[in-house]
């Protein structure tokens, strides 16, 4: 940790990398002293936030353990979500073909879902592993749906034949 920090902060604070590095390494050099460690941990959150601010273009508002969402961004996302809801209702009255309307509705829903995930659920600032976990579930969902749909299509002919026979019997 203390090794990465000076490097991460170089681009932003080129003048004071040495002082930073010394400040960060100081507690590390005294592993036996309890008060020094407590101090390290009390300020640990801030040091962490600093490293993020320098290395990560988005993490400008870290507070303690995680990123804090600015209010204008939250309200902006809500506005976009409500606008997209109105759009998806409005577009239903326009005929875009048998599958066209379904595709448009699903694209709008996916954009809305992405807005919720990225901003409301903090995925943009979260650990990447959590995003990977969630995307895995989406991938499994897509696999599940597409394989089942594919399989069902294989039997459409049998279903049609069976129905035709049933009608003849009537």
């Amino acid at each position: 940790m203390s090794d990465d920090k000076p490097e991460a902060e170089k681009p932003e604070a080129a003048e004071a990398p040495k002082a930073e590095a010394e400040a960060e390494q100081a507690p590390a050099s005294e592993p036996q002293s309890a008060p020094a460690k407590t101090a390290d941990h009390d300020h640990g959150g801030h040091g962490h936030a600093h490293a993020h601010a320098a290395g990560d273009a988005h993490g400008h508002d870290d507070h303690g353990l995680a990123h804090t969402m600015p209010l204008p961004l939250l309200f902006g996302v809500l506005g976009a979500l409500l606008a997209l809801t109105i759009a998806t209702v409005a577009v239903t009255s326009i005929d875009l073909g048998a599958q066209g309307n379904l595709i448009v509705a699903m694209v709008i829903a996916t954009v809305k879902a992405a807005l919720v995930c990225v901003f409301f659920m903090h995925l943009l600032w979260d650990k990447k592993f959590n995003a990977i976990l969630f995307l895995t579930s989406v991938l499994l969902l897509i696999l599940f749906l597409s394989l089942t749909t594919n399989d069902r299509g294989e039997y459409q002919h049998d279903v049609d034949t069976y129905r035709a026979l049933q009608l003849q019997a009537k």
Partner: peptide, 20 residues
């Protein structure tokens, strides 16, 4: 849909409140 979206905003806002 709108009711749930608004509640999602207040939920996200509540996280900010808790952090601060």
């Amino acid at each position: 849909t709108c009711v749930l979206l608004i509640s999602s905003l207040t939920a996200a806002w509540a996280v900010r409140n808790a952090q601060l």
